[in-house]
Simulated scan of single mutants.
Amino acid sequence: MRRRSLILAAVPAGLVTLAGCGDEKSDSSKASDSASPTAPESSAAPAPKIVEGPLPAITAGVKFGEKPTVAKGSGQPSKDLAVKTLIAGGGRTVAENDYVQAHYLGQVWDTAKVFDNSYDRKTPLIIQLAQGSIIDGWRYGLAGKKVGSRVEMAVPPAQGYGSQGNAQAGIKGTDTLVFVVDLKATFNGTSSAKGTEVAQENKDLPKVGTNTDGKAPSIEIPKADPPKKLVANYIIEGDGEEVAADSTVLVQYKGVQWDGGKEFDSTYSRKSLTSFSLQQVVKGWSQGLTGKKVGSRVLVVIPPELGYGDNPPQGSGIEKGATLVFTVDILAKM
């Protein structure tokens, strides 16, 4: 069984449970109430054959990052997954199980009806290319593409919403869907903060490693009493937008106890990123990360009353009344 994150808050507020957060199937598709390409209930079809067409023409908005206008499909679409790179990017290669950040537009082949697009929302989607998280057309069609690419796909029902369709979006079970996707970024278990190192001058606080090679940074606990109040300091300061109190974030993190420095949880150990809402986590996390910039590495020292208190999760190895120390890389705001 995959080990889950230990940071999700339970009721009453301020406590946490082992359930519900921290695996790679976390739903990160909250950018819209419409039909973003999240997976239907069942997504276990075999890998599809991928062909180059046919695909409708892009008639306007042809540059990367521009909202495209896509012609109506001509004739019958392929029964296979059709994928074409319209603009070849030079960034990192996307792999299955990565999280991708992308702008996209989706419409129905036969009618050219646009059922969803992120360009008007001005917020790219961040979602994992994993079975059960996203439709198979995206899962297979985007794997192997590079960041900076614009990709067009014609997705048959078997790799889309299946025979049940998506009634909310007006998609029938026989509809082939056309997507134009601009790949802005990709994240996986080797992703790290990117920014400017900040001096760690307080000798009474833990010192955190500044490596950005995807490996877990070190945490050196000082020979001092733990602070009584919450500490949330930049180790690496990114240049992204600030995280709000109700934001959902994608992170790498590692947690140790102040006494003894024993690690009790880590995305690095699981080799899997975690996404969560700051409204769902222990108070030390929500207060410590609010206002911090995307791309940053943050030292968070949580006193017991803002963490687990006298009720640590069973089997976690965390002592009652423990002060907790985290290094958190904020990779994206979702």
Results as ranks from 00 to 15, higher is better:
residue 53 G to H: 03
residue 12 P to R: 07
residue 130 A to S: 15
residue 322 A to T: 08
residue 56 P to E: 09
residue 302 I to Q: 14
residue 165 G to D: 03
residue 327 T to L: 00
residue 329 D to I: 01
residue 46 P to N: 04
residue 99 Y to L: 11
residue 282 V to E: 11
residue 222 P to Y: 04
residue 73 G to E: 10
residue 30 K to A: 09
residue 74 S to W: 04
residue 284 G to K: 06
residue 106 G to F: 06
residue 97 N to C: 06
residue 255 G to P: 11
residue 12 P to K: 05
residue 189 G to S: 14
residue 226 P to C: 09
residue 6 L to I: 06
residue 138 W to P: 10
residue 311 N to Q: 13
residue 298 V to S: 15
residue 56 P to K: 01
residue 7 I to V: 06
residue 264 F to L: 04
residue 284 G to M: 10
residue 135 I to L: 13
residue 263 E to W: 03
residue 59 T to F: 02
residue 224 A to I: 07
residue 194 K to R: 11
residue 331 L to S: 09
residue 157 P to H: 05
residue 109 W to S: 07
residue 71 A to S: 11
residue 1 M to F: 09
residue 252 Q to N: 13
residue 111 T to I: 10
residue 239 D to G: 08
residue 267 T to I: 01
residue 21 C to S: 13
residue 31 A to Q: 02
residue 301 V to I: 12
residue 12 P to V: 08
residue 303 P to Q: 08
residue 168 Q to M: 15
residue 182 D to T: 12
residue 25 K to I: 13
residue 131 Q to H: 08
residue 37 P to T: 10
residue 270 R to H: 10
residue 266 S to E: 01
residue 183 L to H: 11
residue 242 E to F: 01
residue 299 L to P: 05
residue 225 D to T: 15
residue 284 G to D: 07
residue 165 G to A: 00
residue 209 G to I: 04
residue 179 F to L: 15
residue 153 M to T: 10
residue 316 S to Y: 00
residue 75 G to N: 13
residue 308 Y to E: 14
residue 131 Q to D: 11
residue 283 K to A: 01
residue 208 V to T: 08
residue 174 T to C: 06
residue 35 A to C: 15
residue 62 V to T: 15
residue 156 P to Q: 13
residue 56 P to Q: 05
residue 73 G to W: 10
residue 209 G to P: 07
residue 50 I to N: 06
residue 68 P to C: 07
residue 248 T to S: 12
residue 295 G to A: 13
residue 256 V to Q: 02
residue 317 G to Q: 02
residue 28 S to A: 11
residue 93 T to C: 02
residue 6 L to S: 11
residue 93 T to F: 06
residue 60 A to C: 10
residue 177 L to E: 12
residue 36 S to K: 09
residue 295 G to F: 10
residue 225 D to F: 12
residue 308 Y to T: 15
residue 26 S to A: 14
residue 330 I to N: 13
residue 121 R to I: 08
residue 324 L to M: 13
residue 11 V to Y: 10
residue 245 A to R: 05
residue 8 L to Y: 02
residue 163 S to Y: 05
residue 315 G to Y: 01
residue 234 Y to M: 11
residue 266 S to M: 06
